[in-house]
Each structure stands twice: as structure tokens, then as C-alpha cells.
């Protein structure tokens, strides 16, 4: 496995932490590029998936900073085309998940990823209090976060007319459990951060 010496602050490298936390070894990647060839968004990414794997293998602090600041990790759609075809069975979607939460935690998010993250956060906010996703609430929350107030305006009345938009959320009985699940999982999340 990777060494720790490259990092001046004594942190474990990303590759080591990926191995420890999600049990995936980036060193299995032999850079064939099949993931980048099949990824529906590799053209839009700053680093296509195979390049990101190579960067993880390098284990230098500078490159790792670039990984966490990349747009790639937020563009990944988790469509799992890469893992379905990877000859070395490197679970890139799982690694992407790890890198996203790491990037958020270290506050190194790519500026363009703001909208995507706002969407995810609005989504989670919506279920945190009610237990289920409330689409109108999600969109409202998203617009509030991003100020994209005018976007998607034309489609909303159409949806409403077709009975697809529910104005009021449904609260499940176990909503307090859901809140506790959020509290516990985010405590863990922050706990891991504090350990470092």
C-alpha cells in the first residue's frame, strides 16, 4: 500500500484512506482508459476517470489537492458504466463517493459544482424533516440556495396542470427516526473529520 511520507502534515494519503474506508485499491488500476472511453461525461470532466485514478496513485499533496478540487467528482453521475466494464474491477463510483464527501468536508469544492451540491443538499433537507422527498420543496430549496429563480419556470405550470406537483409534503410517522438517522450519520461524518 501507499506510504505516508509524501505528506508533510502527516496525513494519510487519499489512496490509503480509500483503501481503509471503502476497501478499494487504486493501485489495481493499470491505466487502460476503458472507464474514460465509456464514461458519458468524460469529455466534460477536467480529469477523465482513468486520469483521476492515476492522480490518486501519485500520492503527492499537490495532486491530491487537485483531485479534491476537481469538477470530475461532481460530474460523475454514478451510472456505473465504468465499473461494469473495468477489467480490474476498480469500483470508481465508490471512490467518487468518498472523494465527494472528502472534498465537501475539507471545503475544497470546485466553484462550478455549487449548483450540483445545492441540489443534493436541498434534496437531503427535504427528506430530513418529512422522511420523504417533496419535489416542490426540493425545487424551492434549490432555488433559494442557488438564486436560479427563473430557471425551469416554463415547465412548472405544465407539471402542475398534469397533477405532478404536490404543494404540501407528506410527513411519515417515523420522521423523528429519520431525523435521528441524519444526526447520527452526520455526527459520524464529523467525528471522522475530528479524529484527524
Amino acid at each position: 500500500m501507499a506510504g505516508e511520507s509524501n505528506h508533510h502534515n502527516g496525513d494519510k494519503t487519499l489512496s490509503v484512506r480509500i483503501y481503509e474506508q471503502v476497501n478499494e485499491s487504486v493501485f489495481r488500476c493499470y491505466q487502460c482508459g476503458k472507464c474514460s472511453a465509456g464514461c458519458p461525461l468524460s469529455e466534460d470532466m477536467d480529469y477523465p476517470p482513468s486520469q483521476l485514478m492515476r492522480m490518486l496513485q501519485l500520492e503527492t499533496p499537490e495532486v491530491e489537492a487537485n483531485i479534491l478540487r476537481s469538477y470530475t467528482i461532481w460530474l460523475c453521475l454514478t451510472c456505473e458504466t465504468c465499473i461494469a466494464r473495468c477489467p480490474q474491477e476498480v469500483d470508481i463510483p465508490k471512490i467518487m463517493d468518498f472523494l465527494r464527501s472528502e472534498s465537501l468536508r475539507r471545503k475544497k469544492v470546485h466553484p462550478s459544482a455549487k449548483d450540483i451540491i445545492s441540489f443534493h443538499k436541498s434534496f437531503l433537507d427535504s427528506i430530513k424533516y418529512t422522511g420523504r422527498l417533496h419535489e416542490v420543496g426540493l425545487i424551492a430549496g434549490y432555488k433559494f440556495r442557488t438564486y436560479h429563480l427563473l430557471k425551469d419556470l416554463p415547465v412548472a405550470p405544465k407539471l402542475f396542470l398534469r397533477g405532478k406537483l404536490k404543494l404540501f409534503p407528506h410527513f411519515i410517522k417515523g420522521k423523528s427516526v429519520i431525523s435521528r438517522i441524519f444526526t447520527k450519520t452526520f455526527r459520524e461524518y464529523k467525528g471522522k473529520e475530528a479524529e484527524k
Partner: peptide
């Protein structure tokens, strides 16, 4: 039943 968390949850918090 509750929401499965969809892609938002696994993008942000693995345990969730």
C-alpha cells in the same frame, strides 16, 4: 416507508 436518499445521499454521506 421513507426516501432511499437517491444519489444525493451517497454523493454526500456514505453512512446516510
Amino acid at each position: 416507508w421513507n426516501c432511499c436518499g437517491a444519489s444525493a445521499a451517497h454523493c454526500i454521506n456514505h453512512d446516510l
